[in-house]
Design a protein around this nucleic acid. Sequence first.
DNA 1: ACCTGAACACCGTTCAAGT
DNA 2: ACCTGAACACCGTTCAAGT
Lengths: 217, 217
Amino acid sequence: MPPLRNSSPTKPAARRGYHHGNLRQALLDAAVSLIETKGLDQVSVREVAKIAGVSPGAPFRHFPSRTALLTAVAEQATDRLIVEINKALAATEGENSLMQYRAIGIGFFRWAITNPVHFQVISTRTAIDFEGSSLVHRNGEIRAAMVRLMSDAQTEGLLRNTDASDAARHAVAGRALAYGLARMYIDGQFPSWGLRGADPLEEVIGMFDLFISSIAV
Amino acid sequence: MPPLRNSSPTKPAARRGYHHGNLRQALLDAAVSLIETKGLDQVSVREVAKIAGVSPGAPFRHFPSRTALLTAVAEQATDRLIVEINKALAATEGENSLMQYRAIGIGFFRWAITNPVHFQVISTRTAIDFEGSSLVHRNGEIRAAMVRLMSDAQTEGLLRNTDASDAARHAVAGRALAYGLARMYIDGQFPSWGLRGADPLEEVIGMFDLFISSIAV
DNA sequence: ACCTGAACACCGTTCAAGT
DNA sequence: ACCTGAACACCGTTCAAGT
């Protein structure tokens, strides 16, 4: 698997004009920390501006709307997700397609658990402009990789099922499982389901492996 | 499986005092239709009041806060979910534990697909007061039923795995899968994953059955 | 008992004016 | 080129006053 491409290389920070150096990034950081402390719904552009030390209207020089600001946070979140996925994929050099599919799941879990705020921003689609951003394309590449790897796994005879349509369904099921597990963990539901392990990452990987081994030959 | 208990039986509508009859319910209905048309984030108490034909302050006679109003919508959503689950469970009279676990999944899917707005309200936990409502208890009963049924399935020798801790993990995995599939369907992601079947309910049940049959003996 | 309508402290967003 | 600060049309919530 060649690594998934990430967004354009970091542009050089705009010099001067704003006394802190780079207002755009300062606003993104302020937004993330506000989401952490007060939750996504409570994020106001005005408070983000205040944290960054600028007037209420200043953010609109950099983002056309509150939605655009949150969408930019989601873009940043996707950057990090793709980094984690590529890291996990790189660790499966020479392994078979099913193990590479598994690696994408692992990367996703590692990202979600270490960046709960970013996970929340991406998964709350009503707060961002998903369709109108690069998210639809980059998310599509992750999906395409998952579908292709599962299809390859079928061709390579790694799956118990032999019906061609099952590969597509397994690819979706794995994604739904990963998403659901991450969401349940972030929402703090694990303890009530009897999952009290010290390491949630090990816990979700264990369950994902149950899925992988149950479809494998 | 005895049917899950639902909330208190419908109270008789308060007579008079408000010219439409029952403001509380009128507000809930207005909230649901607003969520449908403008999305959860765009719901304002003021506009809900306007739709119901009352002044901006009137809703606060019935709900202490915007969150409480949305939480009441979530309670109503849970009522419907439990109805669907009980319907599905009733149809599995005499079948084994694993089939009853499956029935809960079917009920959940039928509910989510026919009530996408209610699904969204319940699953967006930041918009409601989950912990401070009856939701935590009633949701807990659904969870307990799933855990017990999967554990019974293990005891009855219906599962391939024999490790006792696997039953708990299968119970969670099924829930995460069901949640993830419903969410992906509601978000309109099915077509891009190649799932273009006319009946989404059949589609998700098919994938849930893949899960059930992969853990069954 | 229930609703009105003014009031308060917030919002998102715009835009002329400043530097 | 970028930021300020006033302005506008909104919010959620409170509360005295009406019926």
